[in-house]
Design a binder for these strands. Sequence first.
DNA 1: AGTTTCGAACATCACTGATGTTCAATCACG
DNA 2: CGTGATTGAACATCAGTGATGTTCGAAACT
Lengths: 245, 245
Amino acid sequence: MSRLKQITEAVRDAGSLGVADLASLTGASEMTIRRDLEVLAAQGVLERYRGGARSLLLRGSEPPFALRSDDNTAAKRRIAAAVAALIADGESVVLDSGTTCLEVARLLHDRRLTVMPLSLHAVNALSSSSTLTLLVPGGRPRPGELALTGPLALASLQALRFDTAVIGCCGLSAEHGLTAFDLEDASVKRAAITSARRVIAAVDASKLTRTALAHVVPVSALDAVVTDAEGDDGLTAAGVAVVTA
Amino acid sequence: MSRLKQITEAVRDAGSLGVADLASLTGASEMTIRRDLEVLAAQGVLERYRGGARSLLLRGSEPPFALRSDDNTAAKRRIAAAVAALIADGESVVLDSGTTCLEVARLLHDRRLTVMPLSLHAVNALSSSSTLTLLVPGGRPRPGELALTGPLALASLQALRFDTAVIGCCGLSAEHGLTAFDLEDASVKRAAITSARRVIAAVDASKLTRTALAHVVPVSALDAVVTDAEGDDGLTAAGVAVVTA
DNA sequence: AGTTTCGAACATCACTGATGTTCAATCACG
DNA sequence: CGTGATTGAACATCAGTGATGTTCGAAACT
């Protein structure tokens, strides 16, 4: 686990912690801890005060992109590979924001497809491809996440029709459907789903036990769920094809 | 001058050249030349054949972004600084693609503004800013240049009104107005100009003696031209404020 | 006023990317 | 079909960059 994440979690669990505590916890020097706190404060994870820092992470909010991106990479890669295998050459694909979908983007780099990613991270991963047609939606990028949101993003999606939408999420259950932490994200996801003929949700196991604030769609709107979990949680019963990566 | 540019120009001037020639010209090993040719071929600058490469650069086309970006940086920085000084805090700005405008973007990073850049390079330069409101237009990024074009870009621009447009170009003269190499770019520039109350053109000296294929607007559509050249070329007579950086 | 904390500046180190060298495989041409 | 030139993969080397630690003067609490 990276030191940044270690600090984030220690501060979150304790509410607030001193620089010296964090230094002895991580084994790094106090100067390094201060530099880390500066980075995390810039990301909005915590707030510094003289001598330490206090957490700003609320329950129900999401840790920032940079800290999630190397979480569980193995599972994400497997899920992404399974998703990529479901996509046929020549298709047009809208690709959601989030770390799992970013892995999907990397796998699509040399494919022959039309892709519209909903986050600038994925746009950057794909912008050097010479084989695929890249479409950028408009919008206001959310800091850190770089997910495109707002009326421009919705308008871009409404103007187009895709063969497939690949959607990530923060929570998924047969009961509560697909949920997201951010309200704006939720409406973008919904617009993406509406614009696509087929909807694939890419969901790692941890999301299947979680429900987030914003409801996006019921599971009946999904055609397939790709996950690394064993349990099914009633998804098949709801008429969704579950693919285990 | 970078070795890549040296190779590009030597091949362009000779039509085609051998690997050994390029190695002795640049002082690098043949292996390095081969790797360079691979890069340049991927950018569409030239075409490789066994033993050498032949140029693909047509007269009237533009060398790729990566080769222009560290050309004349001093002049670009000065122009960019003068442009940034013309923009007041709180304004909304649409920022054209191109290397000069990318320098402007870097200077706007910590300002309090609303900015919509028309190229992904500038988007990336600004996406880490916490002070400004960043808007991304939709569109299809042109390879290399990463300038956003097409109906989505036009729609994004038509949906908004800006205080200021900062426009780069490939050619500018009192007689032929503002011109660009790429037709799609030209319509995006025109849409940006139409959506803005005030139009500033950022133009280095080399552009003032050049005219490109696509006509964008006459000089009368410009409010100010920021340049590093001494000569005026009849711009002032056409009613444009000329700022010499 | 005294003590603690902070951050700028420099030193150090690991790592990445660029370049060169070697050599087996491939290609073009006679 | 053979021969010599050309290519690119693999490894070695080196410089530049980024991360970390140390020091020390300045700033902030008590």
